[in-house]
Amino acid sequence: MSVPVVVGVSVVVFSIIHVLPGDPVLAILSGANATPEQERELRAQLRLDDPLVVQYVRFLGRAVVGDFGRSIFTRRPVIEEIGDQLPSTLELAGTAIVIAVCIGVALGLLAAVRHDTWIDRAAMLVALGGVSMPSFWLGLLLILIFSLQLGWLPATGQGGLSRLILPAATIGLNYSAVIARLVRSSVLEVLQNNYISTARAKGLSEWGVTLKHALGNALIPVTTIIGVQLGNLLAGTIIVETVFSRRGMGRLAVTAVLDKDYPLIQGVVLVSALGYVLTNLLVDVSYSALDPRIRHRDVAEA
């Protein structure tokens, strides 16, 4: 199932260069007092005159070995540019997922256990607040509060957990709402099921019951969501990396689009799409590990 998707993705990525407005050769030469000969020379080098199929096959052949060409602006191989940025984004996204899961599970659990009380509603409202703030605004407010006013955490750069917390929390808060609601409804469902009553009859404490069975029930939808949301999570880094001056794929993507750096756009889009396919493959595999009963469940339907 992943193979046709990957092929399709490669076709889309290849065609970017032919769909975007403007002439890439002129874009490369913009700002320079280029002569027509120079333009012709560059055109010949990029071989934009070949038939599209030939260009696609060449593109695919190179992409397979990780060669996306060179960035128009930095003159470096695109794969190196991405290699520089990817670890930072993975680190950010990973931490953000952890934060989102922690906050989401805590709020969801709290809301479910104290179901229909003001605690329930407050928890859900907090979760909703996190998702309803545009992330650049949330990020700037976090900087002003935790960095400028309280002086607890640095606002920019990489390296160490302290520089990771604020940007990861910005993304994490945005995604915790989804998880909180899932956990809440999963737990509620379990609480109303019979086997809990059975367990209760056996004399287990309420919290023990909740944690053991309810969280087990919430595990699968939460895993699914993390897979489905990964694309959005990566996109969230586009904004957050700019606000917190972190390096990463998001900033690379914005620069590439604004500069019309075609090889770079292609590389970034392809790598994010592959990342998505890969993650969902992993999520698929993890289902059987989490619950053998639903080995055949279709992710797409979840």
Binding site: M1, V5, V9, G231, L234, G236, S272, Y276
Partner: peptide, 12 residues
């Protein structure tokens, strides 16, 4: 086609 579209992050 939809699977392919899904693979591209919304904001991107």
């Amino acid at each position: 086609l939809i699977d392919i579209m899904m693979a591209f992050p919304g904001t991107l």
